[in-house]
């Protein structure tokens, strides 16, 4: 069934901003910066999505989550298209998303050299354990003051 009143693209963006990232649910898909476009092609809603990492298993889940969330709002005629270029970069992360990551204990992307500080005690005395972590987008770091290991959302 096609919704009788076509929701505005602003409304769609607000709905998309309620869908949590499947692997880091403290941020939304809009925060993550993977939604690159929302538009209507007559009665069909077209959502353009870019993958974070080539092999990230969350990519397919993200597409299913978008379809499920919008069909709940009555948008049935929907197409999710993938766009590779411009390729996803951590610069696409929203300010709201960065703050949410920090509060959750994941250090948000800072520079290629590493995080600004420990997300827990805020010490700048931190060291890298490994450039690879529990998901493709994260690296493993450790705080040398509070001694806690933490995830760093690495820059790409």
């Amino acid at each position: 069934m096609v919704a009788l009143v076509r929701p505005s693209t602003e409304q769609i963006w607000r709905w998309l901003d309620q869908i949590p990232d499947p692997e880091i649910p403290v941020i939304t898909l809009v925060d993550l910066g993977v939604i690159r476009g929302v538009s209507w092609a007559e009665d069909m809603l077209v959502i353009t999505v870019t993958p974070t990492y080539s092999g990230c298993p969350a990519t397919r889940v993200i597409q299913m989550d978008i379809e499920a969330a919008l069909s709940e709002k009555g948008v049935m005629n929907l197409k999710v298209v993938q766009q590779l270029s411009p390729s996803w970069t951590t610069d696409f992360l929203s300010k709201k998303g960065r703050d949410a990551l920090e509060n959750f204990g994941i250090s948000p992307p800072h520079t290629a050299a590493g995080p600004q500080h420990c997300p827990l005690c805020k010490s700048r005395n931190v060291e890298k354990i490994s450039q690879f972590g529990s998901t493709p987008c994260k690296a493993l770091w450790r705080c040398c003051d509070c001694c806690e290991p933490f995830d760093y959302f690495k820059c790409i």
Binding site: Y53, S54, G55, C56, P57, G133, P136
Partner: peptide, 11 residues
């Protein structure tokens, strides 16, 4: 993680 990136590129 390296294997995962490579399989994504292969796809």
């Amino acid at each position: 993680n390296t294997a995962l990136d490579l399989i994504g590129q292969a796809q």
